[in-house]
């Protein structure tokens, strides 16, 4: 077995571009997912009538179908259904945001519900209003508890972005596939791709650790 380093060297610029695309999609995906998930998680935790059922349906649909199917649906089926055509990049980011959003909904809901009811009682007994109790007590405590599971979800989302190669988005995995076809050197290309993913997930994990350490989980 010979490992030709020059193949990796030549492929490097394209792989860096792919990694950049992966990072962009991931950032948009987890950013959007955080917004969706926080909102939906609070709706579920506080059982806002009617819309909590819509949220339940959304979470069930996302959790109950493979993310590949979701990507295919958004990219290929949606244009037929409602006449909107998305670029591959937009479809991928939207898909990842919707997907992460459903899981983050559960993370947020779980964190809010895990906060001892006695603390809410103590706040109300002081004479705080319910929104004040959420803002000063339940919110800050629940927020801390979301951080470890969020870190996990961010890494899953980053890796999930690889399957957007099925809709032809030029992210890292898709570049890997193309480069393999061009060079015929699967060993070098996929090793390099794996290393790129490792570097990105490891960095993300370290960032989350840092935040975790800064804020004691109570």
């Amino acid at each position: 077995m010979d490992f030709r380093w020059e193949v990796v060297w030549i492929a490097m610029p394209q792989m860096i571009q792919g990694a950049q695309m992966t990072m962009q999609i991931t950032l948009l995906g987890i950013g959007g997912g955080l917004v969706i998930g926080t909102l939906c998680g609070l709706i579920m935790a506080f059982r806002i009538p009617v819309i909590n059922w819509l949220v339940f349906v959304y979470v069930s649909v996302i959790r109950g179908t493979p993310i590949v199917v979701q990507a295919m649906f958004i990219y290929f089926a949606l244009p037929l259904a409602i006449d909107v055509t998305l670029s591959g990049f937009a479809a991928a980011s939207l898909c990842l945001a919707l997907n992460a959003g459903a899981y983050i909904t559960e993370i947020v809901r779980g964190a809010v519900l895990s906060i001892d009811k006695g603390l809410t009682d103590a706040g109300l007994a002081l004479g705080l209003s319910y929104p004040q109790v959420i803002a000063s007590i339940v919110g800050p405590l629940a927020f801390r508890r979301t951080i470890p599971p969020l870190g996990n979800q961010f890494i899953i989302s980053l890796k999930d972005s690889a399957l957007f190669l099925v809709i032809g988005v030029a992210e890292l995995a898709q570049r890997g596939e193309q480069l393999t076809a061009q060079t015929g050197r699967a060993l070098e290309i996929w090793t390099a791709v794996a290393v790129f993913y490792l570097i990105m997930t490891f960095t993300l994990a370290m960032i989350m650790r840092l935040i975790e350490r800064r804020m004691t989980i109570l």
Partner: peptide, 25 residues
């Protein structure tokens, strides 16, 4: 009200726990 399980706010110091009511209420 004083509870059996104390129910102090765990993310606040003793002083911050006592200050919350006067501040917000």
């Amino acid at each position: 009200m004083v509870f059996q399980q104390f129910n102090l706010f765990p993310h606040m110091t003793a002083r911050e726990n006592v200050m919350l009511g006067p501040r917000k209420v």
